[in-house]
Amino acid sequence: MREIGIDTRALEHPEPLVQATKILQGLTEDSYLYMLHRKKPIPLLDLAGEQGFQVLSREDAQGDWHILIAKDPDIDLEALLRV
């Protein structure tokens, strides 16, 4: 399983969403997006969920958000979460 990681914590809005949507366009069955963000990116989560992606988001103890998005519905995103 190939991780495509992006750390958008230092990026100004809407650059995180722009980068994430670009990655989602090219996401394959054997890859997933692992995104770090300062905030819960509601538009991205809505958008990915609407399109049938599997989505997982979790806040860590520092207040950063870990967002995992995969095309394959059978991938265990919980197991890939680093929180």
């Binding site: 989602l24 809505d46 609407e50 399109q51």
Partner: peptide, 13 residues
């Protein structure tokens, strides 16, 4: 980028 239908009306303003 995404499906033909896009977002449903109650998903985004």
């Amino acid at each position: 980028m995404f499906s033909q239908n896009g977002l449903s009306l109650d998903q985004a303003p």
